[in-house]
Amino acid sequence: MTRDVTILGAGVVGLCVATELMARGVSVQIIDPKGGPGAQSCSWWAGGMLAPECEGFTAEPEVVTQGRHAADWWDQHTDVQRKGTLVVSLGRDRSDLAVFARRVAAAAPVKPTELERDLTQFSEGVVVADEAHLSPRQALLDLQKSLSQKGVEVVTTGAVEGQLIDCRGLVAQDVLPDLRGVRGEMVVISCTDIALERPVRLLHPRFPLYIVPRGDGVFMLGATQIESASRGSVTLRSTVELLNAAYALHPAFAEAEVLELGADARPAFADNMPRIRKLTDRICVNGLFRHGFLLSPALATKLADLITKRTEPEVWYEDFS
């Protein structure tokens, strides 16, 4: 039996595209040299925040509107926590909080301890209620599992069958010369002295930080954003900056155990917005920048519409064929 579609890459984009196509009755195969989601894809190192409104502080308006459906999509496939996002700043950076509140319409003033009782040293904050977070690795494994139950396994090699969909991320620079890498670094810590229910963003002019609770006292700290495609391990400087910012959020983090340090390069186009780009031999879905989990559902849906209904996406679509 020949499959309708061959997907290259088992990162968040490839798995979302496969899931969405299978749901529409399109048969797929997934090829990834590593045989499944894992450390080779930058989505393995993601924060997993589904926070379109907060991202809108720096991202283009389309990222916000397209990202708003992400939580509902993910809810059908993995555990999604809908607790909103809390944004705080240290007293001397209060002006940053004012600017954030001005530019992010959905942000409402809140006393931080009303949401997170441990954040006692912050007197002011804003909350974006309608946002969510998930555990990226669990989400990838859940997608893989449900695909596997439908008979779709990730294979390490194989002949292309049907339409080729290229979701290889930064590796696809061989066919997408305008793709660049933006390095990100993260730290995973364990700390039972502090409880957080939702992602917290610390605004800081030099070292902005977000911290995402993974449950059971585990927290992910991220993420740097450096114009470099280097995939080498975390630098001492970035580690110090991330850990220092965590300490500023709460001194009890000083006693945390460092579980993991990670770094990778995110694929991005010059405007930091993604593309569904049709080439002569394939359709590329790439350039999700720091919005892999936020935008994959929207892109997978658009791609599935393109394949099954021949509806061209209203945004982020380019036909170079």
Binding site: G181, R183, I226, S228, A229, S230, G232, T235
Partner: peptide, 10 residues
């Protein structure tokens, strides 16, 4: 940006 030598090329 130069963290990885030539890595910031783009």
């Amino acid at each position: 940006e130069a963290a990885g030598g030539q890595a910031g090329q783009e």
